[in-house]
Write a protein that binds this DNA or RNA. Sequence first.
RNA 1: GGUCGGGUGGCCGAGUGGCUAGGCAGAGGUCUGCAAAACCUUUUACACCGGUUCGAAUCCGGUCCUGACCUCCA
Length: 487
Amino acid sequence: MDSNLVIYNTLTRTKEKFEPVNPPLVGLYVCGPTVYSDVHLGNCRTFVSFDLIYRYLLHLGYKVRYVRNITDAGHLEGDMDEGDDKFAKKAKLEQLEPMEIVQKYTIGFHDVMRLFNALPPGIEPTATGHIIEQIEMIKQIIANGYAYEVEGTVYFDVEKYCREYNYTILTNRQLDDLLENTRELGGQNEKRGRLDFALWLKAKPEHIMRWPSPWGVGFPGWHIECSAMSSKYLGDSFDIHGGGMDLAATHHTNEIAQSQACNQVQPAKYWMHTNMLTVNGARMSKSKGNGFLPGELFTGNHELLSRGFSPMSVRFFMLQAHYRSTLDFSNEALEASDKGFKRLMNAYGLLEKLIASPVSQMNIDDLSRRCYDAMNDDFNSPVLIAELFEAVHLINSIYDGKLSATQSDIDNLKKLMDSFVLDVLGLKEETTQTDDLAKLMDFIIGLRSEAKFNKDYATSDKIRIGLNSLGIQLKDNKENVTTWNRV
RNA sequence: GGUCGGGUGGCCGAGUGGCUAGGCAGAGGUCUGCAAAACCUUUUACACCGGUUCGAAUCCGGUCCUGACCUCCA
């Protein structure tokens, strides 16, 4: 397994050659969603980005174990505990079983991921399903001297940890500054240090999700689940840990501290962070109220949208930007991507219809190499897509008879498009053409050709315009061969 | 305030010390009974001010603007 893949590592803030711990095995852990409400499009972008990464690693021949957790505890509890509206809180507590919420939004999340054609992870562990592992890990951290218990709550001792490790390795912040500028968290009077965070929290009487532990009845802290589950399924030290950039400063920083304190090793060799999806330049988030739900996008039921956009067009839109760049979301940008996507897929469809000639006027190997170069450069999908449009241009020109290609050229083009469009980018035709429809269309096109041959243009136009209003577009090429596609 | 990013043509977005991605939109043309598609040609760029250099939008310094994180959030 010798690839030229280079990955930007947040730990070092540089691009590094990718060298797995145990090739050809690759362990990939990605922080998944907290399932207490619908995932919005910004969440989806991260998972589509890591789907691209997963797919490309598979394409290169790595045997990838992809673990993406479902957070169904901790955050959820925190969310319910806060806020001033005690009435609402009570209603929530009385009317809904937390696991009902978890189930509902987990299913919704999976449905959306399927629409985006994201490959499911190999393991999708839940926090509530790994309480024992989390407790064991906390016990080990205490035994190692990096955590302490106060009144049923266990805190991580950041100050102690800092004496031996670099706590802010991911973000490069200064500790003094952190101490001065961090907001007061709960439990200040019982914590030893201001930056100490909870590994295990004592449950208040009204708390529904609770488990017994050596420290009494309680529930796990916000960060321990990922440490416990990643080491369980990928080992104490694995290859890639990923998530959204917003997680780096707190969640991942604490995750590294916990894993180091427990296992004395840096949990992941490469830390990858995806950037945010923005709306009018500002981050899409629930608290800002500017989040798009996938459903609103697909139906077009949103004030900023002129119409609905298909999941594949949206996926293509996301892949046209690099995963480490912010991507600005707008109706106009989506329109552009939608057309580009259709152009790409239309050319893909023409591959079957190309006619070979003895002369070659192109170098597919060179194009293929450029595609690999793009992806090897930290998964640069926008450059890959630019190269694929070169392939589109070749395919269209061959189809038009303006360029000649040998059968070998055509085979290689097909292979290139299959690999990169379908396997790596994970794009697919959205409308399945049933055999019945294909036969029917052949028949109708035949009727129209007859009419055209007889110069009965009234009839042929009636067919063309009629089909167009049904969403089917006819295209006559120079040889008067008619093809069709949905619009 | 601290940390880390950005500012690229009408829009979205790559990239690089000289050969100026790509998609969409705009303009002209070819083809076509028409239309669409396709193909060809083409108009708009690298925030501002200095510096380094034979040469910078790309490197360095400064200025302005802007985003994310520092509090649950992908």
